[in-house]
Design a binder for these strands. Structure first.
Length: 152
DNA sequence: GCCAACGTTGGC
DNA sequence: GCCAACGTTGGC
């Protein structure tokens, strides 16, 4: 099993939205490196669901991959904010995966907590200048996030 | 192929 | 709201 961290601005799509929907396709990724990570996801992989650009930044819950990469429908939709005129059905540029909620944290594991914990010193999330919206996490990172989510 | 200009991300 | 970091675009 692999582990990932997916970023979302909660104004756009929050963990609560995922729980409400029950399932979603992770669309709108428009960065090649992030897309390539999406394509590596396999059914059963676990996802740390991260809220960025908000008051309390951090991991709000766990999700699970239930469908592997397929073409992002929004790239073909001229009315979508994610429309890409250079993408065609024959040669799609962008991918989505489907995820479902697993567990919401009662309290988020904040970015400040993550930065202060040595277990994450090699985590891409805390590297300087990191802007990736989809990135791999190690099993150790994942376990440590779960532990921290249980502290109250 | 280089690189300046520009747009976006995302923490603070 | 600011701004550093960084990816993309497009002229040459």
């Amino acid at each position: 099993m692999q582990y990932w961290l997916y970023k979302s601005e909660p104004n756009d799509y929050s963990y609560a939205d995922l729980e409400r929907d029950g399932r979603t396709h992770w669309d709108g990724v428009r960065n090649y490196q992030a897309r390539n990570f999406l394509r590596e996801a396999r059914v059963g992989d676990r996802v740390l669901f991260y809220h960025s650009n908000t008051k309390v930044i951090g991991v709000y819950g766990i999700a699970e991959v239930v469908a592997e990469a397929y073409p992002d429908p929004s790239q073909f939709d001229p009315h979508s904010r994610y429309y890409d005129a250079k993408a065609t059905a024959d040669e799609p540029r962008w991918s989505v995966v489907d995820i479902v909620p697993v567990r919401a944290f009662t309290k988020p594991v904040t970015l400040a907590t993550i930065k202060a914990d040595e277990a994450f010193s090699d985590f891409q999330l805390v590297k300087k200048g990191n802007r990736l919206s989809v990135m791999p996490a190690s099993a150790g990172h994942y376990q440590r996030i779960l532990e921290l989510s249980e502290d109250s």
